[in-house]
Design a protein around this nucleic acid. Sequence first.
DNA 1: TGCGATCCCCTAAATGCTTTAGGCAAATGC
DNA 2: GCATTTGCCTAAAGCATTTAGGGGATCGCA
Lengths: 189, 189
Amino acid sequence: MTRAGLTTERLVRAGAELADEAGFDQVTLSALARRFDVKVASLYSHLKNSQDLRTGIALLALEELADRAADALAGRSGKDALTAFANVYRDYAREHPGRYAAARLRLDPETAAASAGVRHARMTRAILRGYDLTEPDQTHAVRMLGSVFHGYVSLELSGGFSHSEPDSEETWSRVLDALDALLRNWPAR
Amino acid sequence: MTRAGLTTERLVRAGAELADEAGFDQVTLSALARRFDVKVASLYSHLKNSQDLRTGIALLALEELADRAADALAGRSGKDALTAFANVYRDYAREHPGRYAAARLRLDPETAAASAGVRHARMTRAILRGYDLTEPDQTHAVRMLGSVFHGYVSLELSGGFSHSEPDSEETWSRVLDALDALLRNWPAR
DNA sequence: TGCGATCCCCTAAATGCTTTAGGCAAATGC
DNA sequence: GCATTTGCCTAAAGCATTTAGGGGATCGCA
């Protein structure tokens, strides 16, 4: 009996592919075992349980997203940076809907603190350096940007904006214009 | 053997309570049967399958949300209406996290078209009558509001804003100020 | 090269959720 | 009071999760 060469890394990566292809809720150890032509119990040498797999996919997605965002932000500032950052988010979600769903998984606090989610928050704050905001408004703005990006992508992905005029592409562009205008003119308390 | 008095209505309602108490992903026919002290197979006389239950909970949540929103909007306009509407959304999600999660379920197009989601969209548009927006900007704004509300509530619920200053309450209030300012001053193309 | 230790994947089995098929008894209507 | 309908049942199959324990492959080291 030759070995299949399973590792946690390979399993998580394959799980991420499975999520993108079939949906995050279709990610099961059984499906994963089938993909490697291996018995389900064998996976338990590499994963604590099925939740462990899902968490792994979430962490992978957060890493990938943060890497892309860092690339996109390099050398940009102001509205340019805002747009590039937002597009990374949206494009990633559309290319990898399963991974994106995983990234929205609720992680326990210490796992979250050790995840690339932290890098993400720092980058969002970096974007705001191009605008004239001081604390606590900067934090309010960080939260609002997160909400808009996540909310938009999530609604778009679930089909909320399809089959209606104007198309989502245009709205997205106008929403970014609006956010830029808002940040340049953030209302005082 | 006396009958338990099951109906689709009662099952869906109990399913919604279960969702709020234990989380939407804990809503199973088995758990529901336990709650009614009945065998699982008996539920199939009232529900097509477990997806049918989940859809039912989603539709219930959309109805309740739309009812609350309609109440909140009565007699209000402008920023008042915006704030009341947004708070309905946020409060509902915090009171009924399971139902709220259900409301975010992807429904098939015809079910969605027949749902209270439609009323919701109409109400969002009604709020914008207090601002000076014409098509297609009105549609862009509707989508943006939906994104912010859903995104904020969703991030807040998953713990994104807890354990950090300033508290979420204040950010929420400032985000509504910001949206109001933005709508009063929507950037031209 | 040989050998012991470790690792990888296996079989087996328990538990739980979903779904279908078919049956009996309670409620309903005439 | 009887036939029909309805509501809940038993039974069984399928699939996912998880644990326990075993044997063969592989690796480190003498």
